[in-house]
Nucleic acid binder design. Sequence first.
RNA 1: GGUGGCGUAGUUCAGUUGGUUAGAAUGCCGGCCUGUCACGCCGGAGGUCGCGAGUUCGAGUCUCGUCGUCACCGCCA
Length: 585
Amino acid sequence: MYRTHTCGELRIENINNEVTLAGWVQRIRDLGAMSFIDLRDRYGITQLVIDETTDSSVAKQLEGLGREFVIQAKGTVRERSSKNKNIPTGEVEIALSEIKVLGPAEIPPFTIQDDTDGGDDLRMKYRYLDLRRNPVRENLVLRAKMAHAVRSYLNSKDFIETETPVLIKSTPEGARDFVVPSRMNEGQFYALPQSPQTFKQLLMVAGFDRYYQIVKCFRDEDLRADRQPEFTQIDCEMSFVEQKDVLDTFEGLTKYMFKETLGVEVEDFPWMPYSEAMEKYGSDKPDTRFEMLINDITETVKGNNFVVFDSAEYVGAICAKGCANYSRKQLDGLTKWVQRPQIGAKGLVYVKCNEDGSFKSSVDKFYSQDDLKVWAEKVGAEAGDLILVMSGGKEKIQGAIGELRLEMGNQLGLRDKDTFKPLWVVDFPLLEWNEESQRFHAMHHPFTSPKSEDIALMDTDPGKVRANAYDLVINGVEIGGGSVRIFDSAMQAKMFSLLGFTKEEAQAQFGFLMDAFKYGAPPHAGIAFGFDRLVSLFAGLDTIRDVIAFPKNNSGRDVMIDSPSPVANEQLDELNLKLNLKEKE
RNA sequence: GGUGGCGUAGUUCAGUUGGUUAGAAUGCCGGCCUGUCACGCCGGAGGUCGCGAGUUCGAGUCUCGUCGUCACCGCCA
């Protein structure tokens, strides 16, 4: 038996027990005639003592012992003469009678402590050491608890957990596929699923009625702090339901997860149309923890010979409460911030609403105090507030001022990580025009049904058609999305035609789905949550890397196992593949 | 594909206008220490300043390229 107890469980009641512990050496404190060892496992830390009562052979075994050695320690539990109130085991210690090295350790490249000295790069290279640290392990424990909550909730609602294949077919729509060459089918490739979308719809045709899966999905696109090439979704589909049924079910799931894992009660989720989100927040994933809504002041500001505004399609403003005291330097900083290429605004106009009721703006040449007073009323600004104005193309400026709004929210501390504001964004457009390919793309995916009242528009003005599509947004993070699906093969064919597919292409790519719909397809709808994002949100983190045991870096590499990597020529031969690497110039 | 930040001791970082032998903390090694728990005290070792070119009398510092890494834009149905 390697151990009788864990390193986190001994208490004052265990005094005089003979115990055996096993774990990692956290720290050795050598005081000369006596030494202390902190022994660590995932349950906690227990202090081992060597003093004048300890057999000299044991003391000898301490020579060469270092941090992160795995040892087994036998001894007697005794009360400490000086207690440590900071740890649960702090009232007791183990008087050592025997110690044995189970696994020696080299000096670790960074400290295994809550506040490690290791940088991200090094932590990822030695991720197995990083995972020994409490904060990282706690994230993964939270993840496990959340996955458990998902299963227990959905199981209780009669959902059937079903696995779908990972080797599937590449399709041109959506993200780039990861492809896998097939040895047995020369020159042909599988693709890894971007989502189990078509399979879960086929399960509905199969009569499963309620399906879910916590499932890995793959997208070969560039990474971000919240995007990994392989990621996990809570994927669901339901039959004989309308949009409200899906939203109610998954609002219930989300609330259950908040309650079970964080002990947090969240209010009912409001529904916000996509158009309202864009108008008021400049984003389809609004952070509703704070107001500072965007105001359309296009008409208000016209006609004062200020060419920039007069010629602008759209002029938008936000009101930053209590920021009239912003210095020239701060305002210049904001201007510079919106002028960065990532935002790409030309400039930023400000109006300070002074405490004495006067106004000071960067456009005083063009606008009188009375003009500015009208602006202030329009945006709800009071004395002490700062109005920030941007102008240009409508969509671009809404997006830019939405970004500025978030930045101001950060600066003013309005984005508290312990506050959770979920909402449903609904009525997304069905299609969006893609300049590059000069055709419509499905905003959600090609299986999304149009709103029944907009179906006529599909022939006249497809860009105006709204979809039965919805996103769950929490604190400005897109947690998940879904839609009521098309379940009629004729409508599905029409959709493919709108997306520029020929009949033959649609049949070749998705014929199996349209065929299935011919054999009795129930009305169905579904949703998928980004599980990694949800865990990182719960954990208060900005990156999903720390809620994934072995994540990839920015370039899609696993620096620990050093992948991706070349394969042997023999492997390529078996697959009938030949590399065609481009020469670097 | 693009924009920006970073790259100096095992690690995290500092390094002034380009100027003598590149520093700190921590870790590591050695010594001392009977109640520590971030133990303390004393001493020591440890550097291809990512790599390559250029400018210069002189480059950690400036320029260009390159590699790595991070954040973002594009992209992500």
